[in-house]
Design a protein around this nucleic acid. Structure first.
Lengths: 211, 211
DNA sequence: GGAACAATACCTGATAAAATGTATTTTTTA
DNA sequence: TAAAAAATACATTTTATCAGGTATTGTTCC
């Protein structure tokens, strides 16, 4: 008896579900056991049934693919999850992988790509379809845009701000005057045209400018 | 004439440089053209010399591997960069890839792993050594720790806070009373025991709880 | 149908941050 | 070595946040 990988497809477009199941039907060791149009139903299903592989759309109603992946991986880390979408955005792919995804395929990928990605993913690889690889490995200049960096002192202060410290606490930590810290704060906010510290921290973290 | 990939190794441990160059010396189409112990020197070098592949330690003095990779990729997106370290941490690997890295290898990887990763990376793949793959694809429960989530309204408000909006602006945006927004703010801060909004935003972003 | 949670709203005092203007010293770099 | 950038510091006014307590009305889930 051949062991088949029990596979589930989740996509809110029936036409896509049918397309993918057609593509996968001639893969020998893949057995499509279910097809869902919503993540919530999937969550119920995997509680009661063995699943080895999930192919899921990233843009789903109610619960999005990233959160869905995260939720599943918490309880079932062994399930291999491959994300799919029509268009791809760098940060989205990374977020998906960061939340436990085992790979990411663009829906315009060829049958061969699908096949190869799925086999490799089952084998423990982290897989990406061709176009996704290009997107990831050749980041557009906008992704790595040159933003004028923080000076060393500004960085120190921004880091402490992100830890919830007040101006006075930062001054004490760094053995500076309250007024000096106040000036640095202002300079940082002005440099990036941020309205307040909350927006600043969000900006810095999203651009990997802290740590 | 065989085209060889001009390769540079960057590591602040001479012993590691020698080890890796030993490993790579019998790869046919890899030519080690330089070895550096610091990222700054590397940056100068690539301005004047053709480089195809860089193997770099992540923990470098002065400038760390992630920033170094980012800086290089901005100007030279075609250069393939593989990160290396002795121990691996999930978030660090992801950060490296997010900043343009083409792969990540743990230094305890076998020669075969090194070889395979390097060839695949040159071929356009995003590569990870075995142990890294395991770390990424089977996230520890702590990585996906279940933090009590934000309610829908709290999420709306947190998102607007991360955009630098004030309580009054949020109230206007969501057609709520100023006082209601104030209550939500307080509830969110209390839920995660955060001192202020700056710390909260940092926390939420680091745990992928916004977006 | 009742408990638990979520969303809404109000009040107030203390504290902190933001906006604005200025200025000196030190360090880096062209 | 001169110019530029960074770090330091002071003073004040206005505005916003934080922390405390309280309460009503929907929702959602056993």
């Amino acid at each position: 008896m051949i062991m088949k990988y029990k596979t589930v497809i989740v996509d809110d477009h029936p036409i896509v579900i049918s397309g993918i199941s057609g593509l996968l039907s001639d893969l020998e060791n893949i057995e499509i056991v279910e097809k869902f149009e919503s993540g919530i139903v999937l969550l119920d299903y995997i509680e009661d049934n063995k699943v080895d592989l999930i192919l899921m759309d990233i843009f789903l109603p109610v619960i999005n693919g990233v959160d869905l992946c995260k939720t599943i991986k918490q309880k079932h880390p062994k399930i291999v999850i491959i994300g799919m979408s029509s268009q791809s955005e760098r940060s989205l792919v990374m977020q998906f992988i960061q939340n436990g995804g085992n790979g990411y395929i663009l829906k315009n990928a060829s049958f061969d790509e699908f096949k190869e990605c799925i086999y490799k993913a089952i084998d423990g690889e982290i897989v990406f379809s061709e176009e996704v690889k290009t997107i990831i490995s050749q980041p557009l200049s906008e992704d790595l845009e040159r933003i004028p960096g923080l000076s060393r002192r500004e960085r120190d202060i921004a880091l402490l701000l992100s830890q919830g410290k007040s101006t006075q606490e930062i001054a004490d930590d760094l053995f500076l005057s309250f007024l000096t810290v106040q000036t640095h704060r202002r300079n940082i906010l002005q440099k990036y045209k941020m309205k307040n510290v909350a927006e600043l921290i969000a900006f810095l973290l999203k651009n990997n400018m802290l740590n």
